[in-house]
Design a protein around this nucleic acid. Sequence first.
DNA 1: CAGTCGAATAAGCGGTGGCTTATATTTGAG
DNA 2: CTCAAATATAAGCCACCGCTTATTCGACTG
Lengths: 104, 104
Amino acid sequence: MPDTDVFRTLADPTRRAVFERLCRREMSVTELKAGFPISQPAISQHLAALRGAGLVCERREGRFAYYRAQPQALGPLVDWVDRYRLFWPERLEKLKNVLKDMEP
Amino acid sequence: MPDTDVFRTLADPTRRAVFERLCRREMSVTELKAGFPISQPAISQHLAALRGAGLVCERREGRFAYYRAQPQALGPLVDWVDRYRLFWPERLEKLKNVLKDMEP
DNA sequence: CAGTCGAATAAGCGGTGGCTTATATTTGAG
DNA sequence: CTCAAATATAAGCCACCGCTTATTCGACTG
């Protein structure tokens, strides 16, 4: 079942951390697991949840499964935040500065 | 216990909707309840959760309790989204346009 | 004062979420 | 061919969540 609620999927801190790591670079399950104090099945389950929300995709290679983040899936969350950011004007300034710093 | 996880608090769709309404304008509990197909205690419980996350504040007046959103509490969420927005370059353009459109 | 209204709390219940251990499945290694 | 490694799935456990109804509490009204 694709497109499960992104909010709920990212609500869990561990799962959020998994997503964050996969934003940096593609990783295998075992590699991922090394960073967390939970079992391998737990990791696989988090990955399944993230995959269900489209936040992550899988690339199989032999017996390895490499995962990487799919930030486009953040769409609904980004939209929501952008909408409610408007209720917080001071914050807009800060964001504009961030953007300005980004283009060389 | 203040500063409970904002992600988890906003993960529930009903609670998120409550927050959204309170972003528009201050409302009493009864007024809020009118917009949802759930009981008054359920509303109060959602409000307690939102208050626990600092997302909402209360103004008492007689036997009425008026609530309004406190968008600053979105801080952690906004920061997070802004950080991971960077992994999605196309989106950055869109955001810049939104910002541009905002200052006439 | 008695009665009522707005709201919060208590208590309980079904469902779900995240974790575990155990097991299955696929694939590479020797 | 056999075994071990990498991952997924199954099953069960317990805590928590969102809801309900019942009750309580405080404040206005008559």
